[in-house]
């Protein structure tokens, strides 16, 4: 049973790689700063650094504080989550890894009648709502600050600045992918009470993230950046840094939040500087619906699956 949970976790890590490498390095690759393979190697290294250096708080929130995880909950919730994530990647549906995992864990926990910390659920849901809004604010302010400072500088200096800045913001997003996203996946595993080699699991999961990025991520690379409002490198940097800063803040607080939604928030924040019309409200509405659908769907499937397999 436990081995299945590990495989499911690694599958989710693979899914994260295929989805989130584009969040991090899409703009850099598009800008010709890094070749795709080099970007993915860098992404993998930063993910590993993130989970090692700052993953513990988020892992504790998801794996220890939220639900009293046992082997059944662990296996069912991770299997359901991995199925939903792989399916959403295949169908190009924007399901959030965090929401699916948290939804599955709570669903399985309910079905198994274990203690579920409602305060923690409220805190997590608030984080989900606040994080994209905070990213909107951060990116809006960063863009404004850039307008007031950097944009006054000579054009070629800005160009040079952006090349380094884009790489830094991409690095931040990659680091967050390890410290928050991957930590959410590995949290239940690490706090399940089963003896597990921490270094080995972190390393294996990071390799899976790298492989996911390497093998599948080009499919998603355009969606985030071009889908909501057209981004130039200047805006791309403001959106990424705003989102990266926001996710890092929530990581420090130990809250599992979605990098993708934060980046979408960042893009909206930049778009707002150029006027509300630049933001495609229909797409935001779709994302809003997914915001409710993802955890609910994961909750229901996990609940039913655990009830059926453990009557």
């Amino acid at each position: 049973m436990f081995e299945i949970a590990i495989i499911a976790s690694l599958c989710i890590a693979f899914g994260i790689g295929s989805n989130d490498a584009s969040n991090a390095f899409g703009v850099c690759i598009g800008a010709g700063l890094l070749k795709i393979k080099k970007a993915f190697i860098l992404f993998g290294i930063l993910v590993l650094l993130g989970i090692f250096l700052q993953g513990s708080k988020v892992m504790k929130t998801v794996g220890k504080n939220l639900v009293d995880v046992n082997t059944s909950i662990l296996t069912i919730s991770l299997c359901v989550a991995s199925f939903l994530i792989v399916f959403s990647n295949w169908r190009k549906l924007p399901l959030s890894t965090h929401q699916v995992i948290i939804g599955s864990l709570i669903g399985a926990g309910f079905a198994n009648d274990v203690y579920i910390n409602t305060t923690e659920i409220i805190k997590i849901v608030i984080s989900w709502i606040v994080s994209p809004i905070a990213a909107i604010g951060f990116s809006f302010l960063i863009f404004k600050a850039l307008e007031k400072t950097i944009s006054k500088l000579p054009t070629f200096f800005i160009e040079r600045f952006l090349r380094t800045a884009l790489l830094i913001s991409a690095g931040l997003i990659s680091y967050n992918t390890g410290a928050n996203e991957l930590a959410t996946v590995l949290g239940p595993l690490m706090h399940s009470g089963i003896e597990i080699d921490k270094t080995l699991i972190f390393l294996s999961a990071s390799i899976m993230v790298f492989l996911g990025a390497y093998l599948l991520s080009h499919r998603v690379i355009e969606t985030v950046g071009k889908g909501i409002t057209v981004l130039d490198p200047y805006s791309g940097f403001a959106a990424q840094l705003g989102a990266g800063g926001c996710v890092l803040l929530f990581t420090i607080l130990g809250m599992p939040v979605s990098t993708t939604y934060s980046i979408i928030g960042g893009i909206i924040g930049v778009g707002l500087n150029k006027g509300i019309k630049t933001v495609k409200l229909n797409l935001i509405l779709k994302i809003g619906i997914n915001f409710i659908v993802s955890p609910s769907l994961a909750f229901i499937i996990s609940y039913l699956f655990l009830k059926l397999t453990h009557p």
């Binding site: 700063l33 070629f156 160009e159 090349r163 380094t164």
Partner: peptide
């Protein structure tokens, strides 16, 4: 690996 970034705009300076 990062020659383009570490070159501090060498090719850009040539173009300019």
């Amino acid at each position: 690996m990062f020659d383009k970034i570490l070159s501090f705009g060498k090719s850009e300076n040539i173009v300019i």
